[in-house]
C-alpha cells in the first residue's frame, strides 16, 4: 500500500511537471499496487478467520470427544 501511495504522489508530481505520460504510467502502477494490497488484506483476513475457525473446531471436537462417554 505504501508503494501505491508513493506512486500516486509521484504521479501527481508528474502531472504538475506536465509529464502526463509518466503520470499515467505511475497511476496505473498505483492502481494495480492498491488492488494487490486490497487482495492481500482480504486473503490475510480470510486466512485468519479460517485458522481461528479450525482452532475452534479442534477445541469443540476435543470437548465433544470428552463429553462422549
Amino acid at each position: 500500500m505504501n508503494q501505491a501511495m508513493q506512486k500516486m504522489d509521484a504521479a501527481e508530481r508528474a502531472i504538475n511537471d506536465k509529464d502526463f505520460e509518466l503520470a499515467r504510467q505511475l497511476a496505473e502502477k498505483a492502481q494495480v499496487d492498491a488492488q494487490l494490497a486490497a487482495a492481500m488484506a482480504r486473503s490475510a483476513k480470510a486466512n485468519k478467520a479460517a485458522v481461528a475457525l479450525q482452532e475452534a473446531n479442534r477445541v469443540l471436537n476435543l470437548e465433544l470427544d470428552r463429553k462422549a462417554p
Binding site: 496505473e28 502502477k29 494495480v32 499496487d33 488492488q35 494487490l36 487482495a39 492481500m40 482480504r42 486473503s43 483476513k45 480470510a46 486466512n47 478467520a49 479460517a50 475457525l53 479450525q54 475452534a56 473446531n57
Partner: peptide, 25 residues
C-alpha cells in the same frame, strides 16, 4: 502490471481458499 496482477490472482486464490476453509470449518 502483469506481475502485480499475477500476485493479485495468487492472493485472491488464497483468500477464496481460506473462505472455503471457513465455510467448511
Amino acid at each position: 502490471l502483469a506481475k502485480q496482477q499475477v500476485a493479485i490472482a495468487r492472493e485472491t486464490a488464497k483468500r477464496k481458499s481460506a473462505e472455503s476453509a471457513v465455510a467448511k470449518a
